[in-house]
Design a protein around this nucleic acid. Structure first.
Lengths: 342, 342
DNA sequence: CTGAAAGCGCTTACAG
DNA sequence: CTGAAAGCGCTTACAG
């Protein structure tokens, strides 16, 4: 069943059928109705390979997701897909490992399939800097920033990680915490973890506290297992910590269990703050105090930016979306230590 | 840069270049080397649309995932994708809502893209029964069974939900629990929830307990939020319950928080058992007692089955993969109630 | 508004 | 082992 059959069945030529199918203006109402009726009746679907071959492009947009078990991305992905579908796109999603180079994958994909646009859920600006000039279609980086990279076809929508991390530290500091440890991510400034770390360090310094990376920081992947191990290492090493800032909620949840297993209470012995606002955080005991990234806006602004670019808009968007500190139960106010007389 | 350029540059004809690219036997070693060298040098990548158009099919396999926030599926998906890639496939993943009809989507997709095979992560046999005859390529249903449907091109790899649920009840019963409530899923036998429910009911009956659906069952979606609400409703209604079997770990985690919020202790006042073996379960306090579905085997057996079918194997596989009851901390032994003298 | 024709970039019998 | 040719199912100038 191909377009020629529809032409035959409808009594019109192949060209006219194609025009109807593609919503071109120059077709009579009669022709349109007739063709559509036949299409409907026989359940015809155009062959996309022929279509894209002829049009020299893939009609679809590709979504690269960095880490299939990242719940934050799962959440955003769900919305991005729904939005894209509403806009008539049928997105392709490709999963990558947490440590994969998304830009290398995208370059290969673009050559192979010629998508009309790309969205990156997560990504490292360092990779973009190195290889993004090879990709030519509009793209948008979500949850990380493309500012300063200088690519006209790369938008970004993210949370202000530096400011949000600073807020977490302020929150902790205001509640009397002075010995604060941090777990998660790496020190690389191009990654989200690195920027959160940076914001935290700044806030600490503003209060006259120099953050000691050797003693009070443990890098780790964004997973519960890793958070657990990192928390154990950190606490064993720095026994006087009164609070831990986990750079992701999954990490925080693992850390909470670690603290419990070490016979310590949360938040009384050690307070814990997370980052992301995963829904799981509100089911923890105690509920996790954290930064809520606005997945709804992250998704909708990203799709808006991509659609605009697809529509011919030349100016990329570099947007930060509002976040919110969720003050829940895993952080307590620290009583001032009694002054000890020597 | 297309195949004609490669022909020109290599001094061979277009047909020979194509044969080299596709690994056909009838090409001289000289030609192969020369062509490959040129391809390498100019970085040529064949146009997949032209290729698939000509070959009348898409070279890839499609993966339909029912519910993008389902961590069990996320886990299986990761493995399935890796395995497929190792086998040289570049899978397409399509996300569906938890309540979508995956077969309708697959039929449409097949018409449009002609994948060479399909894997369904989750799915309702009732939908397959109604519409799967329209799909002609090999497919495999993961985590649910295709037995009894009679489709030669549909394999399935799943956990024996009936038996596993029965084991959960036995576990609870052996620890003295007699008043057991169940939350999650629906009563429809074709869905996994329904089958777990069925297994539980059977086990209870074997001990002379008739399960009261009106009083002791609360259906719900497989998410923490829903588990929370369902647990509240159930406990309010059936105050004498000593244990709750949540038909999914996400549900269980929500239920644990609900029990806590109602001022009850786990497992002392109410024991909770889950199903799935999500890694999050081991970070709960207390750690969740649950059924571990073997995601590794679920993934590898599914890919094996699909690859075999793609290779010409005509006999579909209908396989159950071993599961394991993880006896952790959320279920306690119930002391026998003291006999009350009237 | 409509039709006839060219051509997108490949693969694969068919000859040789 | 290699080349010339047909054709996969579409879209889109070009005429009319």
């Amino acid at each position: 069943m191909d377009i020629r059959d529809i032409a035959r069945l409808s009594g019109y030529s192949l060209g006219t059928v194609s025009r109807v199918l593609n919503g071109h203006p120059n077709v009579s109402e009669r022709a349109r109705e007739r063709v559509l009726a036949v299409v409907e009746e026989v359940g015809y679907e155009p062959n996309s390979n022929a279509r894209y071959l002829k049009m020299q492009s893939h009609l679809s947009v590709a979504i690269f997701v960095k880490g299939s078990r990242n719940m934050l991305f799962a959440d955003i992905l769900e919305r991005v897909q729904a939005l894209l579908r509403e806009a008539g796109e049928q997105p392709d999603v490709v999963y990558l490992g947490e440590d994969d180079n998304e830009v290398v994958h995208a370059v290969r994909y673009e050559r192979l399939r010629h998508p009309k646009g790309i969205v990156f859920l997560g990504g490292d600006p360092a990779y973009f800097k190195a290889g993004f000039q090879r990709i030519e279609v509009p793209a948008v980086l979500v949850t990380n920033t493309a500012a300063g990279l200088g690519f006209k076809n790369l938008s970004s929508v993210s949370t202000n990680d530096v400011a949000a991390a600073r807020d977490v530290i302020e929150h902790l500091y205001a509640r009397g915490h002075r010995r604060i440890g941090i777990i998660g991510g790496e020190r690389s400034l191009s990654q989200v973890g690195g920027r959160r770390l940076h914001g935290a360090e700044e806030a600490l310094r503003a209060h006259g506290i120099e953050f000691d990376y050797e003693r009070d920081f443990e890098p780790c992947h964004f997973a519960m297992e890793d958070g657990y191990d990192a928390a154990v290492r950190l606490i064993m090493r720095s026994r006087d910590l009164t609070a831990i800032f986990a750079l992701g909620d999954a990490i925080a949840i693992g850390a909470m269990r670690a603290v419990f297993d070490m016979g310590l209470r949360i938040p009384d012995d050690i307070s814990i703050a997370g980052y992301d606002g995963l829904s799981a955080g509100q089911f923890c005991v105690p509920r996790l105090t954290t930064i809520r990234q606005d997945t709804r806006q992250l998704a909708s602004r990203s799709v808006d930016a991509l659609l605009a670019a697809l529509g011919g808009e030349e100016q990329p968007v570099r947007e930060m979306v509002p976040y919110q500190l969720l003050n829940r139960e895993s952080v307590c106010t620290r009583e001032r230590e009694p002054v000890r007389v020597a």
